[in-house]
Amino acid sequence: MITLLADGHEKPIAGAVLPHGETVLGWERKPHGWCRGDACVPAFRAAAAETAEGVDLVAFAGLLGRQVVADLDEGVIAVGEPADLPLGRAPEFGPLTALRGTKVALVFWASWCGCRYDLPAWEALHTELGGYGFNVVSVSLDRDPEAAREWLGEVTHPAVVDADGRIAELYNVINVPTVVWVDEEGRIARPQDTMTATDTFRSMNGLSSERAVAALRRWVIDGDAGTTSRELRAPTGDERLARLHARLAAWLFRAGRGAAAERHLARAAALAPHDLAIRRGLMPLNGVDPFGERYFALRDELESAGIAIYRPLPDWQDERV
């Protein structure tokens, strides 16, 4: 038996070749091809993934433009999101769908980041600007949901925990705090930016919360997003692959298979050394203090390589704003 990690779910499957007659990643075999809703993969293309024994899961995912990392020795396969998601629209998840018709600030944070102390300020903005048709949705990148929940006790805004890293993958989030603005039609109004709601750690990150919050208010009240960039920054193939290795590493750590998990974590770090959402985010599952020496060694490593911890620098930090 193999565990399939895909589309935010864990599912047991008999093997990497699925029997004929089963749905595959939500797609169903019909006479003219494989279909999911109105979308179809024609039969002549799907034939490349079909065998006498069944449907090759890895090959079928490839037809859909989805990367796969399989560790059959450990009995787990992870399937990533499609590579051709529209960059100008906000990928749907959980509470975001229900908030269509309002402006939304997606606030990515984690308990292993000082930005956890900004949550009350984001809650205050959610309340203050709610009358203008605005909502905050906070997304914790904690791999352990319990670590996030202790910081969410007082919030009323929609909050989710991205324990499997799927939302971070959809929005190409490589560190926290990261904020994405989504307009009333579900379009990206401002892509992934480092943004703080307080100056608690300004001495470390150099960011002005006053300017950032002023820019947010202008967008909510006046409709001025202050940028011409209206698409999410797309991940590279290596970044996408790194997130799948991280997903396997998290699953293996939880299963008590530390040696196998560390192999996948090392591969993820090699593919995307700058991705702190992976490298720091998995530290707690590995028994490592995310505020300790290993984290500061990681910071030194990235700074020595010329890789910025907080990037890209939002233009509201410029004197023009």
Rank of each mutant, 00 (worst) to 15 (best):
G306R: 12
Y310F: 14
T102M: 01
V136C: 07
G223V: 01
F253E: 11
R89N: 01
S209Y: 10
R280P: 00
G33L: 11
D73Y: 09
E301H: 14
A189E: 01
D222M: 07
R240A: 09
E92L: 11
L252H: 04
G206C: 09
Y171D: 02
A52G: 06
L298Q: 12
H32G: 06
D275G: 09
P42Q: 05
P312L: 14
R254L: 12
T127M: 00
D300A: 15
N172W: 00
F291W: 12
H20A: 11
L4W: 05
T200N: 06
G153C: 03
V107K: 12
R29P: 08
A242C: 07
L87T: 07
I13R: 15
T127L: 02
N175H: 15
L87G: 12
N172D: 14
G287F: 09
A308L: 11
E123M: 02
G258M: 14
N172F: 05
P31I: 14
P158C: 04
D193A: 09
I13L: 10
R247D: 03
D38E: 11
W34N: 05
A159V: 06
E50Q: 14
G153V: 04
D318G: 12
A61Q: 11
G206P: 01
Y132V: 02
R143L: 06
P42K: 13
H157G: 02
D238S: 11
V321L: 01
V68R: 05
A266V: 08
L313K: 11
R187L: 00
R263S: 10
A297P: 01
G223H: 00
E123Y: 03
G306Y: 13
A124C: 03
H20V: 10
R311N: 08
L241N: 02
W122Y: 11
E154M: 06
V24E: 03
V182L: 00
N135G: 01
L302E: 05
G165F: 01
A70R: 13
G186P: 00
G88H: 01
V155K: 10
R190T: 01
A147C: 06
N172T: 06
G15D: 14
G256D: 05
E92T: 03
T200P: 00
D84T: 15
W316N: 11
A6C: 07
R211A: 15
H32D: 14
W181I: 00
D300M: 09
G88T: 02
L18D: 04
A52Y: 07
M1Q: 10
P12D: 14
F291S: 11
A39N: 09
F296Y: 15
D162M: 05
H126T: 03
V176P: 01
H157K: 09
